[in-house]
Write a protein that binds this DNA or RNA. Structure first.
Length: 850
RNA sequence: GGGCUCUUAGCUCAGUUGGUUAGAGCGCCACGUUUACACCGUGGAUGUCGGGGGUUCGAAUCCCUCAGGGCCCACCA
């Protein structure tokens, strides 16, 4: 039975009440019975980083996605709406280290009875020396333990927000399904030649001691200084160059200038010797050298920045790397440093950090007189790992790559075409994708020298001298594997280190996240499901991860399936603070979503998010959350208006065929609202759908409901009463369904007063088959303003009786004369036909004494 | 340096293919305690549509140009 209508409907408590009911009923459960790809709407959802923290931006974009899910569900689609957690990767590792006071040492054996020294350590990063070293498997177990707890909190928040996710379809990027998909996809990339290993200069984070990819870079402004250094020509003259990295002098392999630079023509083809170290290096020409930068001639070191890498590669220069994986100057000087004095100078630098080495080199250069003048301070931008806080270095290492079109014009072209095949909402977001694809400078570096992630599933044969030989790959049937503990077919554990060795690297987190359609859709474990949901209907995400998640997903889908992964990509904007700056933790302007949901209610917060279109940034002022209050007001109004409508007596006659002209026009207007909201939703414009319904709803409450309430009470004829009540109830029924995606809690509450099922599985309203609106409702509205205005001008209450009044307007207006009389409490109403609506000759009844 | 995007009321934003007098909400002012709602209702004031130029009978809307904000990419000796 439908629930009783409360005396005082309230929003408080609706979240807790309804989330439980939805769960029990399986309202949002994906049921594949009888489903076909055509009537399934599948959503590829962004797995939030489990160890991070959810912020208002998440609430914003996840709400956008939920609006579409709810709309499509009501349209009759079987909605596949899973939710994932991105729990592998660096943020988790860092948190686990601090929380449990441990660090991973992959050389240690597994300890089944291990208990961590700490439980609940804070985020103040403890020193590595204080952390207990444990095996990789123990470390991963702790990662899983901690992330499960984090994920529970996330799920709780999402349920509170009212996301219509099917929680039986959740996945974790470290879960078995993810490992299976990531390893299978990688092995297939490898088999097709799309994955390969290369020994190359690599962007390297010295804090995390891992390689990082182009997509993970972030520029940061850093103070630096230009140092003018003198190089020496054989004839005794000097060449002055400027550098911000004098500590790399021992790694210098050449000087370079632009081929057209007349100042240096005489130097090309000659050699010079480096200051302090006396190493003979050539002077070369390359178009990337800029004439107007510094002195126009630069030193090339291995490696100071990515331009050095280009020069080194294209000019075929030697490699004299001096920076180690820990960011310190390596112990052994490059072979090119030969003299005792040079070796002595180098030994002063060995073991020092880049920072200390720089200071010492400058002192040495001052002593030798090879530093010209004082260093000139500058601020320039330097490449950082987006999660790191020290500048990246470039060191040569052996890494795994996946082709991404950077070196393959055909693949690049195909990926651009894929972008064209996806409907971006809004459309201009495609440009960001195309810019990224067009600007790729190297293949995708997928290996990471970390611990918590999906292992790269290969081993290497070892020769008699212990050198790595051919790659050994597992068959797909035995996946997932961890090569650091599992043994390849045909070998024994005893052979480890002598006949074979396991790959220790793990995959980049994006190498797993790029497979979310395959992971959530059961590519490996449930092929029947995968057939039903892939390619997906929708990818929903933020604009900040187009270059990473969106691009890599398109790439993996193209390589593996030869198709785009989804038909539509809905891109949400981000949240900016009142100063138009992007919200970020460092600025301290982040508000926790849970507190906001508690304070304003979920429907209110959803309303705020829904008011912004896809791709549009939304300003949010935590001190002054106006938009939340508006949404809250709407939800409360829905409760109260519906309660009022349901309070009118049951009609005693049928309204069919005898509907009042005003009621007919109300339904005609509502019909147009239905069509407009539907068109807007189909166009991924949820904000317009909301605005259209909302605008109608307020007119419905303020004008129509006021006009007909006397009639609905039964003040006129039974036919008039029936017409009003049936129209009111139909309008409320339709409005509840139009609002259901936006304010799911309030609408479900009201729906339950007259229905046993859920509004969220009720059909989305379709045309009522009404005629074109006559405009009567608008005319009546104008007349109402005239009547109310007269009372306000007279400083009288709206319930003041009116002895007589004259309304002028088009003839049709007279059809609503009785309703106008009732709402205005007008005893005698004269009607005059005119073009424009006006109210005149109002005579108010004497007001009672105060 | 390249690309995308934005600039409309004090604030946050709508404004569909050019078409009467440019809209909404908030805020503000005044009034009203009306038995759906005081987490309320009614009424009101508020704009050189960033500047300039052009096309047109007609421009917030199309074109050119300038200025400013934001984001992305590139550069970063």
């Amino acid at each position: 039975m439908a629930a009783a209508i409360p005396d005082k409907p309230a929003l408080e408590g609706l979240e807790d009440a309804w989330r439980g009911v939805w769960d029990d009923r399986g309202t949002y459960r994906f049921d594949r019975t009888g489903a076909t790809r055509e009537n399934i709407f599948s959503i590829d959802t962004p797995p939030p980083t489990a160890s991070g923290s959810l912020h208002i931006g998440h609430v914003f974009s996840y709400t956008h996605m939920d609006l579409i899910a709810r709309y499509q569900r009501m349209r009759g689609k079987t909605v596949f709406y899973p939710m994932g957690w991105d729990d592998n990767g660096l943020p988790t590792e860092r948190r686990v280290q601090n929380y449990y006071g441990v660090r991973c040492d992959p050389t240690l054996p597994y300890d089944p009875g291990f208990t961590p020294p700490l439980e609940g350590g804070d985020n103040a990063s403890s020193k590595a020396a204080d952390q207990q070293p444990i095996s990789r498997r123990n470390f991963i177990e702790l990662c899983e333990r901690l992330t499960v707890e984090d994920e529970k909190q996330y799920e709780d928040l999402w349920r509170k927000l009212g996301l219509s996710v099917d929680w039986t379809q959740s996945y974790r990027t470290i879960g078995e399904e993810s490992q299976l998909a990531a390893q299978r996809a990688f092995l297939r990339n490898l088999a097709r030649g799309e994955a390969y290993q290369a020994d190359a200069p690599t962007l390297w984070d010295i804090t995390f001691r891992t390689a990082v990819a182009q997509a993970e870079l972030e520029d940061k402004e850093q103070p630096a200084a230009y140092h003018a250094l003198t190089f020496h020509r054989p004839d005794g003259s000097d060449v002055v160059i400027e550098t911000t990295r004098p500590e790399l002098l021992p790694a210098c392999v050449a000087l370079v200038a632009h081929p057209d630079d007349e100042r240096y023509q005489h130097l090309f083809g000659t050699t010079v010797t480096t200051p302090l170290f006396g190493v003979e290096v050539p002077v070369v020409a390359h178009h990337l050298a800029q004439k107007d930068k510094g002195s126009g001639i630069a030193m090339i070191c291995t490696f100071g920045d990515v331009t050095d890498v280009v020069w080194w590669r294209e000019l075929d220069l030697p490699n004299r790397t001096i920076i180690g994986a820990d960011g310190r100057i390596v112990a052994d000087a490059p072979a090119a440093i030969e003299t005792d004095a040079a070796k002595a100078a180098y030994s002063e630098l060995a073991g020092k950090t880049v920072f200390s080495a720089k200071a010492r080199v400058v002192e040495l250069l001052r002593e030798s007189g090879e530093l010209v003048g004082d260093p000139k301070p500058v601020v320039h931008s330097v490449k950082f790992f987006e999660k790191g806080d020290r500048p990246l270095e470039i060191i040569s290492t052996r890494q795994w790559y996946i082709a991404n079109g950077a070196r393959d014009p055909k693949l690049r072209e195909q990926l651009v075409a894929d972008g064209q095949a996806i409907n971006f909402a809004p459309d201009h977001m495609r440009v960001r994708y195309e810019n990224w694809v067009g600007g790729l400078t190297g293949d995708w570096l997928v290996s990471r020298q970390r611990f918590f992630g999906v292992p790269i599933p290969v081993w290497y044969e070892l020769d008699a001298d212990g050198n790595k030989g051919a790659v050994i790959v597992p068959t797909e049937e035995i996946l997932p594997v961890d090569p650091s503990s599992d043994v390849p077919a045909g070998y024994d554990e005893a052979d480890r280190g002598t006949k074979f060795v396991g790959e220790l690297d793990i995959m980049d987190t994006w190498a797993t996240s790029s497979l979310t359609p395959q992971i959530a859709g059961g590519w490996v474990t449930d092929p029947e499901l995968f057939e039903l949901v892939f390619p997906y209907s929708l990818r929903s995400q933020g604009q900040d991860i187009i270059r990473t998640w969106l691009f890599s997903t398109v790439l993996r889908s193209q390589l593996e399936h030869g198709t785009v992964p989804w038909a539509n990509a809905g891109i949400s904007g981000f949240i900016v603070d009142p100063d138009r700056k992007k919200m970020s933790k460092s600025k301290g302007n982040v508000v926790t979503p849970a507190a906001m949901l508690d304070e304003h209610g979920s429907d209110a917060v959803r309303y705020w998010a829904a008011s912004s279109r896809l791709g549009t940034d939304a300003a949010f002022d935590p001190q002054n959350p106006k938009q939340m209050k508006i949404g809250r007001r709407l939800a409360i109004k829905v409760l109260n208006a519906a309660k009022f409508v349901y309070s009118f007596p049951e009609p005693s006659v049928t309204a069919e065929g005898a509907r009042n002209a005003l009621d007919v026009d109300l339904l005609a207007e509502l019909d147009r609202v239905i069509l407009a909201a539907t068109a807007a939703f189909d166009d991924f414009d949820h904000a317009k759908a909301l605005e259209t319904a909302e605008r109608f709803f307020w007119t419905f409450c303020d004008d129509y409901l006021e006009l007909v309430k006397e009639r609905a009470y039964g003040a006129s004829t039974p036919e008039g009463q029936a017409s009003a009540v049936t129209t009111l109830r139909l309008a409320v029924n339709v409005l509840l369904r139009l609002f259901a995606p936006f304010i799911p809690f309030a609408t479900e509450e009201v729906w339950s007063w007259t229905n046993d099922d859920s509004v969220h599985t009720a059909p989305w309203p379709t045309s009522l088959g009404a005629e074109e609106p006559t405009g009567l409702l608008g005319l009546v509205g104008e007349a109402l303003i005239g009547i109310r205005g007269a009372k306000t001008d007279a400083k009288a209450s709206q319930k003041t009786e009116v002895v007589s009044a004259t309304i002028s307007g088009p003839a049709a207006l007279e059809l609503a004369a009785d309703d106008l009389k009732a709402v205005g409490r007008i005893a005698t109403l004269n009607f005059v036909v005119a073009d424009a609506v006006s109210v005149s000759d109002i005579v108010l009844a004497p007001q009672p004494e105060a």
